[in-house]
Simulated assay, not measured.
Amino acid sequence: MQNATSFTVYRSLFAAVRFFYENGPRMVGLSVVWFLCSLPVVTIGPSTLGAYGAILSLREEQAFDYDRIRTLLGRHGLSSVLLTGLPVLLAATGALYVRRYFATESTVALVLAVVTLYAAAYAALVLIPTFVELANGAPLEQSIRSGIRWTSANAVGAIAMAMATLMLFVLAGALTVAFVLVFAGIAFSLHLDVLAPTVAE
């Protein structure tokens, strides 16, 4: 994975939009499938991992490699559920501490709320490079370590990528149907272009 800056994220956003446009019907189909498969919520992890694998295969082979996607999910499907559950659990814990702070004005509750919410945000940022590594065929432990190292070494780039993803989420969500049709395709193409540009070329 390459280092990232705000500029590379900005450039990758346009590259992701162009890639989506060039592969319109397939990318729209991928976005719709991702949305439907993510509706149970607990399946967001496997759905996202599968989407990364699908886009990687489309970049490399100009077609979706369904065998590759099935193998990827068979190997790391359960792990992706557990990985996506971590930031959710931390965020829920942080929300409870926030509620406790407003009820009691306890300094300890405030400190714990800040710590757990920060940990939740950091865990969410680490998930993106971790999933990209998994989609590229790396083992689970190596992918997690790579995700942590990349996020720590590229804090500005990681935050810029998260903000760009949030912007896409808000814009697509405001258009309602557009969220289903385009969000996953553009957002995950953005992540892959930032983290694996050699694949994107």
Results as ranks from 00 to 15, higher is better:
Thr5Pro: 03
Thr5Trp: 10
Thr8Asp: 05
Val9Asn: 04
Tyr10His: 14
Leu13Met: 15
Leu13Asn: 06
Ala15Arg: 12
Ala16Asp: 03
Val17Gly: 09
Val17Glu: 07
Val17Phe: 15
Phe20Thr: 06
Glu22Gly: 15
Asn23Asp: 13
Gly24Asp: 08
Arg26Asp: 15
Met27Thr: 08
Val28Thr: 10
Phe35Glu: 00
Leu36Val: 14
Leu39Gly: 00
Pro40Gln: 08
Thr43Ile: 01
Ile44Met: 12
Thr48Tyr: 10
Leu49Thr: 05
Gly53Arg: 01
Ile55Arg: 01
Leu58Glu: 10
Arg59Tyr: 15
Glu60Cys: 11
Phe64Trp: 13
Tyr66Arg: 10
Ile69Glu: 09
Gly77Gln: 09
Leu78Ser: 14
Ser79Asn: 14
Ser80Val: 10
Ser80Thr: 11
Leu82Lys: 11
Leu83Met: 14
Gly85Arg: 07
Leu89His: 06
Ala91Lys: 03
Thr93Met: 12
Gly94Arg: 02
Ala95Val: 02
Ala95His: 00
Ala95Asn: 00
Val98Ser: 08
Arg99Val: 02
Tyr101Ala: 14
Ser106Met: 08
Ser106Cys: 07
Thr107Pro: 09
Val111His: 05
Thr116Gln: 09
Ala120Glu: 06
Tyr122Pro: 06
Val126Gly: 00
Leu127Trp: 01
Thr130Leu: 08
Glu133Leu: 14
Ala135Cys: 06
Gly137Lys: 08
Ala138Trp: 00
Ala138Thr: 10
Leu140Thr: 00
Gln142Lys: 10
Ser143Lys: 06
Ser143Phe: 03
Ile148Pro: 02
Ser152Cys: 11
Ala155Met: 12
Met161Val: 03
Ala162Cys: 12
Ala164Glu: 06
Ala164Lys: 04
Leu171Phe: 13
Ala174Ile: 03
Thr176Pro: 03
Val177Pro: 10
Ala178Asn: 03
Ala178Trp: 01
Phe179Asp: 00
Leu181Asn: 05
Ala184Asp: 04
His191Asn: 14
Asp193Tyr: 08
Leu195Cys: 12
Thr198Asn: 13
Val199Ala: 15
Ala200Trp: 05
Glu201Pro: 10
Glu201Lys: 05
Glu201Thr: 11
